[in-house]
Nucleic acid binder design. Structure first.
Lengths: 211, 211
DNA sequence: CGACGATGTATCGGACCGATACATCGTCAC
DNA sequence: GTGACGATGTATCGGTCCGATACATCGTCG
């Protein structure tokens, strides 16, 4: 998952670890806490060993001004052609982990770099998964209600509500996707509900495709 | 986290691994997927090594009917006195991990075994954490809006909505807690909104305290 | 000029997951 | 009857990720 996110982010610009973490936090803030350095740095090395990213000098040509202010040990990474290929491959093959909370969130965050067919497939897979969770919760709340204390039931009830809401959200996104529109539908539940600013440019697939 | 949940569940009845997983899934279905055996069994051994749980023969006295149907290798665990002490200790000391998604959910699921002061402290800690996440999302949606594509923004918007809803839910629970009522308030958002069945028995602290 | 907070890289132990393996039991179709 | 199948049941292994920790530099403000 982190591998996917790093590859995705580095396609926008070369970055060093610290920066990468900040961008990651901004982009994925809705779905998970800040990534740990204990994961980030080993992963960066792994990606480098695999040839998907490389170190980049900040001033490209190494000589010229070699140790003017004695540049700190800042390691800037950039994605390689193989890395872009790998990212595309990770998008294409959507396994079961693509539909769990974190996996779906990360994939969704890079929907602008995903083709419409795949977007649709992921949204529908996620919907199916949430529907299953919802049914499980309904079962517990229905059949096994007397075995549970009030707090556990309240937890399930709240979870059930969240499932129902997410299914509705997904339905909306799927409908938009099918009709070729971008997200942020003006119908129910949208926060920025002002009716102006409604027809944004069609999503993604723009700039920086395969060279 | 899993340690906490196992200790909590085994206070209701002795169980073997498979059963434990099923109960765990039922109780925590709202907040996480089924626990993996790859975690469960090692954890059980760890808890046993620490003296918090022990193996229990299903028919107590080992001889009598030794190999009638040649009982399968079913290992039933039960909690020890030290285990109950450990559980109480884990409830009392609420660290930062108590307020993240999983940690809070697990603690909440065992609120019936938690004293009111601790319940209140946990609910307020969780609220604070969610409020912080909410502010972070508002910042990103406000200040850095032009840097994000439509999909990323939609993700943040949906996350922000979930935060706002959870804060309201927590407010309600806190208010209930302060007024000494059980959860499932009849005000906004409660699913079982029929006005009858309103004054349930005050929560928890019942049966099976320290022997 | 020294304290402090932001920036920046790095490691280590431990928690947890997903895949896999293997064995028993009851049941239903053939 | 017998064999296929799904539920029950215990167990291990490699890999991902987290949280704590350590350490060094930079700018700023009292």
């Amino acid at each position: 998952m982190l591998e996917f996110a790093i590859l995705g982010l580095l396609q926008e610009a070369p970055m060093h670890g610290y920066e990468l973490r900040k961008e990651l936090t901004a982009k994925l803030g809705a779905i998970r806490a800040a990534i740990s350095y204990g994961t980030l740095y080993p992963t960066l090395r792994r990606l480098q060993a695999a040839g998907w990213i490389t170190e980049a000098n900040e001033t490209t040509t190494a000589s010229d001004v070699p140790a003017l202010t004695s540049r700190r040990g800042r390691v800037v990474y950039e994605i390689t052609a193989e890395g872009k290929e790998r990212f595309a491959q990770l998008i294409a093959q959507a396994g079961p982990e693509t539909y769990d909370d974190t996996g779906f969130g990360v994939h969704f965050a890079f929907f602008a770099r995903t083709d419409q067919a795949t977007r649709l497939r992921i949204l529908e897979g996620r919907r199916r998964k949430i529907e299953e969770r919802r049914e499980g919760l309904r079962d517990v709340l229905g059949r096994a209600a007397e075995r549970l204390d009030a707090y556990t039931m309240e937890l399930q009830r709240h979870g059930l509500e969240a499932c129902e809401r997410e299914v509705r959200w997904l339905e909306e996104l799927i409908a938009n996707e099918r009709s070729g529109r971008a997200p942020t539908a003006p119908t129910t539940g949208a926060a920025g509900g002002r009716p102006e600013d409604n027809s944004p440019p069609p999503p993604g697939e723009s700039r920086e495709e395969r060279p």
